[in-house]
Design a protein around this nucleic acid. Structure first.
Lengths: 191, 191
DNA sequence: GTCTATATTCCGATAGAC
DNA sequence: GTCTATCGGAATATAGAC
């Protein structure tokens, strides 16, 4: 099935990501992936010998996505407000799908993760925080945003509000998440 | 071992809570608990026939603890600032131990949880949010706090900052967590 | 690249002796 | 209340045929 293309491999990564963000790393198996793709679990092992190998690839692709987002946000003509909204929208999309962000999901299982993954997670977090921090600093400088904290701290606050917000939404529903988002935007008000 | 008292049962619950907050629900087994207590896993099953039964008890005790905290915070003579600090301190203690809050931990595995647990988690979240909201509303009314959001939304913001903050601390270290805490207190400033 | 088949280990759980 | 012994099942993983 799909032997000519790299489809299977990509599908495995996509499903793995989906499972991690939905059920958690320790709660899905190669059998789950195999079943969804109508292949046998040995085929999954062919592409990723160990589950850790798959995890590393997943985190790597996630990092790549944020690199792409960071790049996209550098486009001229975007207001700082639109840039920050694009970041928030990522979480809203997750929330709508009942998923949580990779960082929050893997953060729970952090101490069961191999060192290589821990290292990559550090990279990922710095990438995301750095990106948001940059947008905030720029917006503040241009007078679009006004907030009392340093851009780094405000980035931390926004990211943690969103990360835990999508987790909370599973338990209390989306209303609270929406309230958080609204508040986040208001907190950056230029007055 | 400890047959006359309820020690074993309590120790099982204590260890289960510790494991959930350290490794996650799907990442520890009855064997892990048994080993720590120098008993066999059959003895653990005697006290809690299924892992779900243990989980329900753990969440129940966690709820009880927050009931106790809420009660304690009703004591007269406490400033609103001290009350809110007591809430923050809970998270700081967790953070110092490398643990994350139960809500965040179980939130990741939420869709693998039985209905009874999901229901209890809803209770727990409302209890915590209600408690914080009450303290914030009271403090605002008394002029101790000043913030633009409703108490409910501010409670949501604080709780998500803390919950994800302790998760993030595992990855980036405690410095970011401390910065979040400092900022949270400042955000309530009475100008 | 995928299959069948299998090895190993672990997990949650139970029966029955003490 | 704890033990020994064991079951059924699932998870990770590998060998070798196709």
């Amino acid at each position: 099935m799909a032997s000519r293309t790299g489809d299977t491999r990509e599908e495995i990564v996509r499903l793995g990501m989906e499972f991690i963000q939905t059920y958690g790393y320790n709660a899905f198996s190669y059998a789950d992936i195999a079943k969804k793709l109508n292949i046998k679990n040995a085929a999954v092992h062919y592409h990723f010998p160990g589950k850790e190998d798959l995890l590393i690839e997943i985190v790597g692709q996630y990092i790549q996505r944020y690199h792409d987002l960071a790049r996209a946000l550098e486009a001229p003509g975007l207001t700082s407000r639109k840039r920050i909204q694009a970041f928030i929208d990522r979480y809203t999309t997750l929330c709508d799908q009942g998923k949580i962000c990779l960082i929050g999901s893997v953060g729970s299982d952090y101490f069961t993760m191999p060192e290589t993954v821990k290292k990559k997670l550090g990279e990922l977090v710095e990438l995301v925080l750095g990106m948001v921090e940059g947008v905030l600093r720029d917006g503040k400088k241009k007078g679009e945003f006004s907030f009392p904290e340093t851009p780094r701290v405000r980035a931390l606050l926004m990211m943690t509000n969103l990360a835990a917000g999508v987790q909370l939404a599973r338990i209390t529903g989306q209303k609270d998440y929406k309230a958080i988002c609204n508040s986040l935007v208001k907190q950056l008000a230029d007055t």
